[in-house]
Design a protein around this nucleic acid. Sequence first.
RNA 1: GGGGGCGUAGCCCAAUGGCAGAGGCAAGGCGCUUAAACCGCCUCCAGUGUGGGUUCGAGUCCCACCGCCCCUACCA
Length: 821
Amino acid sequence: MARPFSVTEVEAKWQARWLDEGTYNVDNDDTRERFYALCMYPYPSGSAHQGHVRNYTFGDLVVRYQTMRGKAVLSPFGFDSFGLPAENAAIKAGSHPRIFTEDRMQELKSSVLKLGAVYDWRRFVYSHDPEYMKWAQWIFIKFFEAGLAYRAMAPVNWCPGCATVLANEQVLGDGTCERSGDVVERKNLEQWFFRITDYADELLRDVDGLEWPDRVKTMQRNWIGRSEGVEFNLTFASDPSKTLRVFTTRPDTGFGITYAVVAPEHPLLGILTTPEQKASVDKLVAEASSATEMERTASSDAGAGLDKRGAFTGSYVINPFNAEQVPVYVADYVLGTYGTGAIIAVPGEDERDYAFAQAHGLTVRRTVAAPADVEGPYSGDGPHINSGFLDGLSIAEAKVQAASFLEEKANGVRKVNYRLRDWLVSRQRFWGCPIPIIHCDNCGLVPVPEDQLPVVAPDDVVMDKSGQSPLATHEGFRAVACPTCGAPARREADTMDTFTDSSWYFLRYTDPFSKDKPFDPVEAAKWMPVDQYIGGIEHAILHLLYARFYVKALVDLKIAPGVEREPFKRLFTQGMIRLDGSKMSKSKGNLIAPEKYYPTVGADGLRVFHLFVGPPADDVDWTDQTEEVIDGCARFIDRLVRLAQGFDVTIHEATTPEDLAVTQAVHRTIARVTSDLDRWSYNTAVAALMELLNTLSRQSRSDEGISKTTLDDALDTMLLLLAPMAPHISAELWEERRPTDRSVHQQSWPVADPAMLVEETITMVIQVNGKVKTRLEVAPGISEEEAGRLALSTPEVIEALEGQPAQRVVARPPRLVNVVK
RNA sequence: GGGGGCGUAGCCCAAUGGCAGAGGCAAGGCGCUUAAACCGCCUCCAGUGUGGGUUCGAGUCCCACCGCCCCUACCA
């Protein structure tokens, strides 16, 4: 489309100026009120896609808007530059992941610059920068020394394609790897963990105080999964000296226990299993341990509907409530990693137990009276039955009694369990931050001394397809003298989960200049917490949870004393871009590259589109009409340009009532746009500016015209309001109009004059029974009585009342009166 | 199975319990033009997924259902 100005020239000019002048650099001794705006740490995936554009458009708007509001705004940028895609690509291409990664960092950085997004580039941080790695490793060592990092054998998810261990959350619902799509297997390996469960309670509690979308808060709570219950012993029927420890949240259903179940990996399984049952138990265990997530979930939808596979162990335990002997089963629906790895089964009240009981012909006994129409398990409330001393009690009452009973009789203890597990942080990969630990036969696990940090992976590695991490087999890297005793020792070959890098980068941004510490806690405390964090919903659980944990741990370890314990005060999650119903993403190959728009509609046009297309939190459907909408946004800019350049404008001398109306519209727009930007209603903010431009343009082109002052003031205000949205053209037009003045971006945000917001008369709607009958022009300050009186005196109301007195008059002056007949 | 979101004009979306239309796209007409594009002006188009409820008043709040989307999933 033909544009009335050179888009590429204007945009390049201003981008260069912001970069060269460091317009958005902010110093730590700045005395203005502080504001920390941050978009989530991006993985360098190459040139930006529309999701990035959307993200950085919102982020940049916040930065520029808050700057105009007089704040010292911290706007940093960096890259989450470690990670599997680079490593896989390097293996494929036979090159080094660094080369691949840095190319893509350049690309994404240049895309972001072309969008006109502004940052303090002096604070640039990237994960594979040795300076950053040094402190990442230093923090790891502090965690290790504090007992927050530990090693343990763990049944882990093994992806054969990636030849690495995956975190649970990297395994998709269908049991495949989120990266490679391979079917994930289970293996027992020694791994590094962070003790995030120490913070489970605080992580859960603090969710309440966050200004985050409710659904993200709910997701965090569900992920942590707190449940209160009782842990107690079941005595072996064959040997009263042996017990099986179980956990339940429903001790009140104890009289309904008809069997018990242990997980396939339960340590007592061996002694529980009788010789006659050994074959079938072994078979079940073998199936369960080789079972992939895929096989476990493939048979049906999920949850209680799954096949309840299991085997009788041959042993019995005694139900402490009624002294009955009940059989012990092994089944893979009981998890070894949760609770005690063993449960009581109450098929009358639990869906999963019920399904298992049905499948294995076990007794079902209700302990809570269920409504007549309930046939299967009933988990609702009701009086207890068949339950001895609990009969007649509600669930809540019975829980208390039963827990006390178990405390007395069965070594019971009230306990809180969490679904949250410790964070498995080791990865058998090359392209990550090496774990700074040395394995010494004499001294055990020895941290790498601080003066030898960072541990950097050697460059002379062979990136081949063997699946082995190049670090594991690199003798030059692994062979090292023990820092404590000097004996030959081995360096740890695992690297850290990249979620560790994104768990403290925002702290480094506050003070990336420190050479002798990860960041200055005083500077960090001044900037933190992040005032506005912006990112995708896909990070709603893990990244946010891990970062919250890191900050709490760093504060407790006195590395970040004085820093707020919650890092992200306000979170905004943007909607995703979808094409033909599915998410627009590189992996799906359905990208619409932003690059094609820069020479035509420009970054400004594309930004206005992303702001205008719909509520920022909603998904965007990229349809056949989208191109036309984008053109429409560029057209809006063009109309403004032509008006600013005086095209087709008629100027008159005196100030007329029409001029006043225009000025009032300008001030109403200031109020609207300001409140819209504050509440993330960017689509309506753009609409308000379009509306103002329509008003202004119509008046300027009309025969009577507009006064120069009115037009100038209106245009100046428009440019100020538009500056955070379309920063290039706003700056350019501002400069054309006020060449000696400071840039529009260094101006103060306009404030609406209250006098200009007052309307002389207001249209008051007169309703009868909620139906509009007529409208009156009234003074804004009209009283309730006066409004009601006026309404009752209108011919329309008199006619509608048909001579009857009004039953009621609801007056809401000055907007509305409703007469109830 | 659990949790959350969304259904308003041909389409994208506004309306913060008070006149259903702010803005845009598309369509049609007129003007400008040798002509077209651009540009300008004008017009057309819904009673808010369905059924109840609360209220003087419901697109908005509550309940149920229908449709679509997202997250989560054997956590005892």
